[in-house]
Structures are given as structure tokens and as C-alpha cells.
Amino acid sequence: MDKKVTTPIHSSARRNFLKQSSAMVALALAPPTILKAGDKKVEDQIAGYFEKVPVKLEINGKAHALSIEPRVTLLDLLREQLHLTGTKKGCDHGQCGACTVHINGKRVNACLTLAVMQGGNKITTIEGLANGDELHPMQEAFIKHDGFQCGYCTPGQIMSAVACVKEGHAESDDDIREYMSGNICRCGCYTNIVDAIKDAKKGGKSL
């Protein structure tokens, strides 16, 4: 989809219009059996169809041609429609970093962007970080330094950490602390997260 199409089109007026007009179209085109149903379900399906927008995304190296409602966030698209649940929802407001993914190599809070805004972009989630069975060095480092407990913030921490190193924001402990502060860990594993990032960076493998 063209990147310019970013205007949200989910006002209820438009939806109601779609519902009514689409019901009329349905009336004209539908075979008699469906007509008999003539109920909310049919309207819903048609309304749903008209409310959707085509989007092409590349996620973890795989091309997706999708049809999605414009109000769907990238986070909900990943979790609820593509079942890539490694990307977590902790706040849905850009306040916790649990949903961090890479868009064209940069870290972004997936809850703060609508999926339709990402047409043509390359998205990497935690599921796409490892090379098959071989873990990414940052994932290895998090295990080695026990950089987590419950694991819920962890995908976001790791995606953020990889970007943090690439940005050149992991030159000192304080640097890491500052540039990793958008990722909350309520289990409080920060000490180990810093150790893991330092170690992964020192490892020198390409991150």
C-alpha cells in the first residue's frame, strides 16, 4: 500500500454509511438464500469488507499482503491477526517498551503505530531475530546473564538492546542505562540486562 495513505477513516458516520450502502449493494447482488438471512451478520461482513484497507508488509523476511482495518495497531496486527505473540503488550500507550520491534532496522513501539502506516516496510519481531535454531548473540547474552525473570518484557528489551548497540548508544554502562530506559522491567532485572548488553557488544559478533 502507498505510504501516504495515513488518514484514519474510522469515524462512525462513515461506518454507518458503509453499513447502509453495502446492505443495499448486498440486496442487489446476493442470491435469495442469503437475502433471507438479511440480518446483522451479513451487514457486518460487508461492513467489515469495506472498512478494510490493503497493506503489504514484510515481517521477519516474509511478505504479507493483508487487508486490515485502519484502526488496527501494528502491535495488535502482530499479536491478534498474525499470531506473532512474541511482541508483548504492556501498556498500549508507548510507555513501557514491551512492544518494541524493528521497522527498517530502527526500534519502534508497535503499539504507537497503525499497521496501515507501515506499508512497504520491513518489520522484524523477536521471532525473526534468531537465525533458525541459532540464537542471536543478544538472546544468548540475556540467558547467560539472567537478564529476565517472568520474561514478559524480554522480547522488547532484546529488540531494544540490539538497536541500542547499533545506534552506538551502548558505549558505557550509563549510556546503556539511559538508552534502555524506554523498556520497563517490573521484575527489576536491570542489573543483568546491562551486563547482558555489554557482553553481547563485547562479543563482537555482528548484532
Binding site: K89, I126, L129, A130, Q139, P155
Partner: peptide, 14 residues
């Protein structure tokens, strides 16, 4: 650990 760092660990909404 591996399940948690790869996003494969499943929580109640997943």
C-alpha cells in the same frame, strides 16, 4: 530461557 528470549513462551492472552 530459550522460550522467553525467542518470544515462544505463551502467556494467558496468547
Amino acid at each position: 530461557g530459550k522460550l522467553k528470549v525467542t518470544g515462544a513462551a505463551k502467556y494467558s492472552a496468547e
